[in-house]
């Protein structure tokens, strides 16, 4: 059974059709890349899945449960973890507090499973090489460090489905490698990931399947190799080839 099922999902705002009949499944343990030109509806789709925008039609099923009517915080409690394009960390809080606040928002039984939360915090900071900066304000970190902290926090908060919105955006090339390593670690540990990226080689190296969006519709779906070779992808990004 698919972990996440999107069926005929649509979103209309002020008569503008932002999403139109989006349907695809994400199997447990899969990494699915979501690509498409700017304005194709990728981040909007994430906002609908995580509950920040209410869909105009269709349904979202997570682990067999219809979550379409749930609030963002309840969807998070059901296991949807989100990494935002613009660094979803709290800059006025310390690094330790940034991780702790995520762990404390988990249901009590999950908190118990994690054990001593302070140890989890220390382990998370260690994982991203920020053990010495726990008491510092998160706003003092570089873009790459913020991204690593955000992904590691989401990972430790025990989410089942990860929505990663351009995790390498604003990250130095050196740090991009570290981000990729963490995402690969997610895959090894059997987590399910839906990732938006513009870096096609990066997507090709980590994803099982790629979904291509254009003007709010799914226009292509397949393995990274299939999508890379397709004529439709080239048309979406570069326009129709006048020689053909």
């Amino acid at each position: 059974m698919a972990l996440l099922e999107l069926k005929d999902l649509s979103l209309t705002i002020d008569e503008h059709k932002i999403l139109q009949g989006i349907s695809f499944d994400v199997e447990e343990g899969q990494i699915i890349g979501l690509i498409g030109p700017n304005g194709s509806g990728k981040t909007t789709l994430f906002n609908v899945i995580s509950g920040f925008l209410k869909s105009s039609g269709g349904s979202i099923t997570l682990g067999g449960e219809d979550i379409s009517s749930l609030s963002p915080s309840l969807r998070a409690k059901r296991g949807i973890g989100r990494v935002f394009q613009n660094f979803g960390i709290f800059r006025d809080m310390t690094l330790e507090e940034n991780i702790l606040v995520a762990l404390e928002a988990l249901p009590k039984d999950q908190q118990k499973e994690l054990g001593d939360l302070k140890e989890v915090v220390a382990g998370t900071l260690d994982m991203v090489g920020l053990s010495d900066s726990g008491k510092k304000k998160a706003g003092s970190l570089s873009g790459g460090q913020m991204r690593l902290l955000e992904i590691a926090r989401t990972l430790k908060a025990g989410k089942g489905l990860f929505l990663l919105d351009e995790p390498t955006a604003g990250v130095s090339p050196k740090m991009t490698g570290q981000v990729a390593d963490i995402i690969k670690e997610l895959k090894r540990s059997g987590k399910t990931v839906l990732i938006i990226e513009h870096d096609l080689p990066f997507i090709g190296s980590i994803c099982d399947e790629v979904v291509v969006l254009d003007v709010g519709k799914v226009v292509l779906q397949g393995t990274p190799a299939e999508v890379k070779e397709s004529k439709e992808l080239k048309e979406i990004y570069f326009g129709a080839d006048p020689t053909t």
């Binding site: 509950g51 915080s73 309840l74 973890g81 606040v101 404390e104």
Partner: peptide, 24 residues
């Protein structure tokens, strides 16, 4: 307390806080 941290997180960015499961 955890409540204090949740209040501060909501004050700094409501969407980010809600995406962690914080009940506004």
């Amino acid at each position: 307390s955890s409540f204090g941290r949740q209040l501060q997180a909501l004050a700094e960015h409501e969407w980010h806080a809600k995406s962690l499961g914080i009940n506004r």
